[in-house]
Write a protein that binds this DNA or RNA. Structure first.
Lengths: 202, 202
DNA sequence: ACAGAAATGTACTGTGCGGTACAAATTTGT
DNA sequence: ACAAATTTGTACCGCACAGTACATTTCTGT
């Protein structure tokens, strides 16, 4: 960030730019998104962009931080209180429900991994820490599930958390490649079944 | 492919170009790789490239097909004969062993998913079919494991195959983001443990 | 050996996009 | 209300890279 906006209008502009960039980066990827598109979607010119951000990679860094917050916040209600097998299944359900066959299927965080240049060190660190926190929160929830005795015998909550996160990211990747959000559902359900026992009929 | 080379020298050149492109696309991504780099690494000018390929997206399509074959062939010995829990663990081990903390950690297929443009329809289809075949072969192996009674009770081989593949792709993604190939190992081991029971001490 | 074909190297062109400069408009404080 | 500062819009620059043209060299068959 180059200059913090001092007026309310300036702050609103920065927010609009950031929103637009998040949206475009998530949908088309970073490299496929031009600053003109960001300017157009946020209804600001490209001029402002350089007033508030040093350049594109600075904007990218800000977007990464924003997306990490968004994703973790969106999960927080479910993750923070996760303590039963049903809660885990609800989380899987929420995760799978977010994608539809119409839109491009890509995780707002996962899709960033391969698009950050080698020079975007700060953004890479932010993203890695985001994944780490996500995994930790999942693990904390799964430990509570374990304490209730609802985790498969001998299953390590930390390992299951890592597996769930990886399966989620990989599931979104494959669902995107095959244009089939069902793949994500299958994958998450498979792990839930292995770790928690057969899904109860509802 | 624009023109099939008629001489042995021409065929060798095409092979070198394809090799170089595979290498560079896998290491740096498609968009970050210039045709000059491909020409340089394959020790041919950019001129030849346009003799044998229509343009970059044509080269990309050829590389995708090549990578799909390479990856499936590399796994074939293990996948084709997979029939015990130990075989599954060996596959996991091989998968995890392929990455080290020094090199950039990216799956040659998974990293392509987000880099194919909307217009590269043929390449997308090839890639999707590749993932499908990979999953099928895993599932076939796991069915043989199930017949031996070495799969966890009630585990569906097809679902476990989907989970393993997704966890592999996601694991590589996360390992790359966190610069820690150990993440991939943890993930694969976690699923192996859930699906096959605790890892026997060796 | 020698014509014709294929393969190779180089130099050029056009374009898309990140970045910069600066003029015009709007807002803020007194 | 007015000056200073901040915000907004536009026009330009330069570079990197995909794509093209063409001259030169190396193969192939007879």
């Amino acid at each position: 960030m180059r200059t913090e906006p001092t007026t309310a209008k300036g702050r609103a502009t920065v927010a609009r730019v950031l929103d637009a960039a998040c949206e475009l980066f998530a949908r088309q990827g970073i490299r496929a998104t031009t600053l003109d598109q960001v300017g157009a979607l946020s209804r600001t010119g490209r001029g402002q962009l350089y007033l508030y951000f040093v350049g594109k990679s600075d904007l990218v860094a800000a977007v990464v931080a924003q997306q990490v917050h968004r994703v973790l916040d969106a999960q927080q209600p479910l993750l923070g209180t996760m303590s039963t097998a049903a809660d885990v299944r609800a989380w899987c359900d929420l995760a799978a429900r977010q994608y539809s066959a119409e839109d491009p299927i890509r995780c707002p965080l996962g899709s960033l991994v391969h698009e950050l240049g080698e020079q975007d060190v700060a953004a890479r660190v932010t993203l890695a820490e985001g994944f780490g926190r996500w995994r930790s929160e999942l693990a904390a929830g799964l430990r509570r599930v374990e304490q209730r005795g609802e985790l498969a015998d001998g299953a390590d909550p930390a390992a299951v958390a890592a597996a769930l996160l990886a399966a989620y990211e990989g599931g979104v990747l494959l669902a995107g490649a095959e244009h089939d959000p069902g793949q994500l559902r299958i994958v998450l359900e498979a792990i839930a079944t292995l770790a928690l026992g057969p899904t109860p009929p509802c």
